[in-house]
Every structure is written in C-alpha cells, then in structure tokens.
Simulated scan of single mutants.
Amino acid sequence: MKVYEQGILIESNIYFHTPSEQAKNLFLHLICTGHYVCDSTYAVKRNRYDSFLLLYVIKGSGYVYQAETRVSLVEGSLLLLDCYQSHAYGTSEGWEIIWAHFDGKMARPYYEAIAKEGSFIVEQGVYSPHHSLQKIYNLFHETSTVKEPSVNKYLTNLLTDFFSSPHETEQANSHKIDELLAYINEHIQEPLPLETLADRVCLSPYYFIRTFKQETGYTPHEYVILTRVNAAKFYLRTTTLPIKEVVYRCGFSSECSFWTTFKKYTTHTPLAYRNMTEPL
C-alpha cells in the first residue's frame, strides 16, 4: 500500500502482517516491511515501537542515533535497531531503503548476541541483505500468499550477516563473482541485463557493480561486451559460420550492433578481421 508521510515519495510502499500463532511460537515473524524512496526531510523519532528493525540502504545515505550519538548509514549499510527503546533515524540528503520490522521469541537473544559482537551496523560488503529483504518484501508486493517459514529463513540469514567477518564476506563475494564469470561465458548468447547478474550473486545492482569491477577490473557491461567480442573473434578466425550466425551465438542484438561494437574494440570490421592473413 502507498505511504503518505513527510519525506516519503510516491513510488514507496509499505505492507503489514499479522503473524499466526505458529509463527509467534516458532519463528522470527514479520510485523511490516517497506521499500521507501525518500527526500531530505525524511526522519523517524519514536519512544517505542515494539519490534526490531532491519534496514538496508540501497542508495544514498542517512543516519541513526545510538546512545545519543549520531552514526552515519552509507549506501550498502545494514542496520539492526531495537525499537523497544527510544530511537531515531533518517536522511538529510535523500535515500532509497528497504526494511522490515520483526519480532519473535528468538529476536531478543539474537539482538543480545549481536550486541556482544560490538556492532549493529554492517557496512559495504555484506553478501545477502538486499537480496533477503527484497525476498521478504516481494512476498507481499508480488504474491498473495505469505509463507511464514520463508520469512523466518530470510530474517535468520540477515541476522547471521552480523556475525560474518569482513574477510569472510570478501571471500564469499569473490567466490560468487568467479561463478558468475563462468555463467556469463556459458550463456553469452542470451541477454545478460545488469539486474539478472546482480540477482544471481544476491547483491544490489549498485554494490554489485563496485564488487565486480574490484574483482575483474571491468564493469559488468564492459566484461559482457568483451566476452562477446572475444567469442566473435574465435568464430570468425576458426569457423566459416555466416556473420548472422556469429551475431546470434555471441548474443549481439543485431548485425548493426555487432559491426559497430566489433570495430570499436578491434579497429577492424568482422569481415576484415576474418580475412586478415598476417598474425594478430
């Protein structure tokens, strides 16, 4: 449903959930979830809202007050907040966030265990929070049936992120990018939009681009194009396939696009490249 509050823009949505008795007794359960796009006037200040909050910053930046100290929330930050206590957060520049208020018999023990780890904010490099929060949100936004065991699983995954060291996170991201490179090479003839690639590694598009470039030296778009050009070079030099077939096998949208892209990256037209006799 739409939200009509100061600082929350029209494209934002919020959904509420009344948990079953089984969910109350067994699971971490959802109270409400939302996807907000906010301007610089968005601010929340409450004495109490009986729940815990998980909030992920998709884009932009904001702040949260912890023990009367203002702490920054940057793009890629995951926040865990005890809303049984007085709390305040918001943005002075504008941001896009996805969040979930939750509770359950294990919510407080999780919170206290995370408190012993020393931080309720994980920044830049958490592997799964956007993906998991998006899954929770989509159960309301895109489907008519809310599966409470699935909500519990996603919430548990999110809380587990607070126990992961930065080194473990970097290793997980690196491993997933390696798997993605193999996927790109195996599916080069198919459309490979950014959102699809980011979803495969459970990262937001914004963080995915940075992580991918850090691992490969290229943006995802650059890497896909270079992979397609390199595949085309192979087919042109080692087969007699017609140009139309090369275009299809390498995933280019049209012959015109293929010719333009190929010449940009090789300085040769596809036919000139195929007919060259001197070593390349």
Rank of each mutant, 00 (worst) to 15 (best):
E123G: 13
N275C: 08
Q22K: 13
E117K: 09
Y111M: 06
T169L: 11
L80E: 05
I58P: 02
L81G: 05
S254F: 06
H187Q: 06
K153W: 13
S204Y: 05
Q214F: 04
V224L: 00
R210K: 11
S144P: 01
S119G: 10
L9I: 05
Y154Q: 07
G125H: 10
P166H: 10
A67V: 05
E170P: 04
Y207A: 14
T196K: 12
I188T: 06
N13I: 09
K153H: 15
T33A: 11
K59W: 00
D161S: 14
P109I: 03
S20E: 01
E278Y: 09
H187D: 00
F163N: 00
H131F: 14
H268C: 09
T269R: 11
T261W: 07
L30E: 11
H187A: 01
P193G: 06
E215C: 00
M1I: 04
T196W: 07
I31Q: 07
V64G: 03
E170A: 08
V126W: 04
T227Q: 03
D39P: 05
V44Q: 13
P166I: 06
I188W: 03
M276G: 09
L181Q: 00
S144D: 03
P129R: 07
I177R: 05
F234K: 13
Y218C: 10
S86P: 03
I8H: 11
G34P: 07
